Amino acid sequence: MGTYTITRRKLNAFHRKQLKKVLNIKYPVKITNSSLYNKCNERPLSIFILESRWRLFGHILRRNSQISANQAMGGYFVKEGSKFKGRPLTTLPVDLNRDLSRIINSNLQLKSSHDLEHLRSIAQQRDEWTKLTARIREAAEASQSEH
């Protein structure tokens, strides 16, 4: 189990704890996670964060290519020098690629500037971007329900 999965689980557990406090549900009383989310009309916090990340990414991709955020994304894929030692850094492109890899039967990825340009072309069509974000959310929800 990776650091990303552990962090996501801790975040969701903290969120559920806060929801139980709001509903005044204490120790001997048990409630399933899905029942808790339904009762509060909520969903896991990690799913909300994932959707927000992809909405922001789409917004950035639709903006002018000269803004700092677009230049930083493009600069990420320019490889200079040798790799550093140690665990790979968790960066926004790494998280976005991890989200894309969850989609079944999809050849979408974010590993090069060519992939970034392909996603930029999808982002220009808002309805297509919304569909992509929904597919990513559904894949994330399915992977959470398996655990």
Rank of each mutant, 00 (worst) to 15 (best):
S65V: 11
S143Q: 14
E141S: 10
L100R: 09
T3K: 02
T7Q: 13
G86H: 14
L89H: 12
N105I: 04
Q125K: 14
K20A: 07
I67Q: 01
L110H: 01
G75C: 02
Y37H: 02
S82C: 13
T90H: 00
Q71F: 05
G86R: 15
L92Y: 06
P44S: 11
L36H: 04
V78T: 05
R102I: 09
N12T: 10
A123V: 03
W54M: 07
Q71Y: 09
C40A: 03
L61A: 01
F57P: 04
R137F: 13
L92P: 02
R137W: 08
K131L: 13
F84I: 11
L11S: 10
R53Y: 12
R98L: 13
K39V: 06
N12C: 05
Q125D: 15
L132E: 12
N97R: 07
S46K: 13
L56P: 00
K85D: 11
T5V: 12
S145Q: 15
R43Y: 06
N70A: 00
E80I: 12
K83R: 14
P93E: 08
R120I: 04
V78H: 01
I47Y: 12
R63F: 06
K17Y: 11
W129R: 00
A69W: 11
L11Y: 07
K85R: 09
Q109F: 09
S106A: 05
T91M: 15
L108Q: 04
S112T: 14
S65N: 01
T3P: 03
T32G: 01
E80Q: 13
L36I: 04
I6Q: 15
Y76T: 05
L119C: 01
F14I: 05
I103N: 15
L110P: 00
A123M: 12
I60H: 00
S112E: 11
R137S: 10
L92M: 13
S34T: 05
L96K: 03
Q109Y: 09
E146H: 14
V22W: 02
G86Y: 08
E80F: 13
